[in-house]
């Protein structure tokens, strides 16, 4: 773009990467220290035998924790806090869980098909009590395919910001402002991919991830609605207030 200089893009990459590292919940070194420890069979069985509502509550708590870090990330993205408050809320309501799914590849072990959860690495079978096997399988498949792109922390940071700044979310009041921020982020991401000498296909593969993320999130909402229809009081009294605000 004639209006965005290389220096500006470099600066954006730097700022967004720093924000990502400051808010990423787990550093890669910390995860390595956990030595990729998997749950033992009796631990897996204990998760599987939890009542459905208890497991849902546990997962809602974990998702909410992760989302709080994403909110902090958003606040540190250049220009995000200059948007009107309505749009900040719209972008977070629609995008925070998507970023949690993107970030999941950092805590995912592709070889064992396990994800860091509640202190150890868990396979999809750990989440059986939720009663959402199809969604869990899709989430694991998504993490695996994100991992296969081998994105660096910088690239992940830029892609996360790009997702958060999606200008096509419904109910945005200052769409144009968001569009400008997203375009700048996309340029910075392209610039970074070129600089890192990534092959041309990576950006295209990331574009496909955008629709996959939307599908995962809408399926999460469907599953929550189905759960809430059976356990309205559990959601009302035991689920984290932030989770209810975002997905209620």
């Amino acid at each position: 773009s004639p209006t965005t200089s290389m220096a500006e893009l470099d600066h954006l990459v730097q700022v967004i990467s720093k924000s990502h590292l400051e808010t990423c919940q787990y550093l890669r070194e910390e995860l390595q220290q956990m030595s990729w420890q998997n749950f033992l069979q009796d631990e897996v069985e204990s998760y599987q035998s939890k009542p459905r509502e208890v497991m849902w509550q546990l997962c809602a708590v974990k998702i909410t924790e992760a989302i709080q870090y994403v909110v902090e990330f958003a606040k540190r993205i250049d220009g995000f806090m200059d948007l009107c408050q309505n749009d900040q809320i719209v972008l977070l309501k629609a995008g925070s869980l998507e970023v949690v799914f993107v970030r999941m590849c950092r805590v995912f072990d592709s070889q064992n098909n396990t994800v860091y959860f509640d202190g150890k690495f868990a396979g999809p079978e750990v989440f059986k009590a939720l009663g959402c096997d199809d969604l869990i399988t899709s989430v694991f498949d998504f993490a695996k395919s994100m991992c296969s792109l081998h994105l660096s922390e910088d690239e992940l940071a830029l892609f996360s910001a790009f997702i958060l700044l999606s200008a096509d979310r419904t109910w945005l009041q200052e769409k144009l402002q968001v569009e400008k921020l997203q375009q700048k982020t996309q340029l910075a991401l392209q610039h970074l991919l070129q600089k890192n000498q990534r092959e041309d296909g990576v950006l295209n593969k990331l574009r496909f991830k955008v629709s996959a993320l939307r599908s995962l999130c809408s399926r999460h909402t469907e599953k929550l609605s189905a759960f809430r229809a059976v356990y309205p009081d559990i959601v009302r009294t035991h689920f984290p207030p932030l989770y209810k605000e975002l997905f209620g």
């Binding site: 806090m81 207030p241 605000e245 975002l246």
Partner: peptide, 16 residues
Amino acid sequence: KEKHKILHQLLQNSTS
């Protein structure tokens, strides 16, 4: 605003 009380709060807390 009431509907997104916590989100508002989180957005208003200063980043540290």
